[in-house]
């Protein structure tokens, strides 16, 4: 067997086969592979995005939680302060009121004492006068000893 034209004919055939493959076999194959690669890339990207989203959400929720806690503690502190204030105010009011009441009571007591004293003084004077009158009815003239009686009454 020597080299002959048959080889050229086969080369032409082979070239046609290669052309056919390039034209009709290779493009669908590469398209399929590209689509597959794109699908994989999309899937991986979606997974990454989801992971990122999850991390973001977790961070956001943590932030929100921290904020809420802070707000809550602020509220509690405010409430405590306000409560203390209210208690203080109430204490002050109570003290003032108590003092007022005490003063009123004391004034009333003083007044009553004064009235009692006055009444007693009147009664004692009357009693003393009556007593003295009874004692002195026999020996003392009322008119005669009026000065004395008045001075006694003033001393009571």
């Amino acid at each position: 067997m020597e080299l002959n034209a048959s080889l050229i004919g086969q080369a032409i055939t082979f070239a046609l086969l290669v052309w056919f493959t390039m034209k009709f076999v290779w493009p669908p194959l590469t398209r399929m592979m590209d689509e597959r690669a794109a699908r994989i890339a999309d899937g991986l990207a979606a997974a990454d995005r989801a992971k990122q989203d999850l991390a973001n959400a977790e961070r956001a929720s943590a932030d929100r939680l921290r904020e809420a806690k802070q707000q809550a503690s602020e509220l509690i502190a405010q409430a405590e302060k306000r409560a203390a204030q209210i208690v203080d105010e109430a204490k002050d009011q109570a003290k003032v009121e108590g003092e007022r009441l005490i003063k009123g009571a004391q004034a009333e007591v003083g007044q009553q004492v004064q009235q009692a004293k006055e009444a007693l003084r009147q009664q004692v004077a009357t009693l003393a006068l009556a007593g003295a009158e009874k004692i002195l009815k026999q020996e003392i003239d009322a008119a005669k000893h009026a000065d004395l009686l008045a001075s006694i009454q003033a001393e009571l």
């Binding site: 034209a5 048959s6 080889l7 004919g9 032409i12 046609l16």
Partner: peptide
């Protein structure tokens, strides 16, 4: 050789 591709 010139006809081979027709069948080949």
């Amino acid at each position: 050789f010139w006809a081979q591709w027709v069948l080949g």
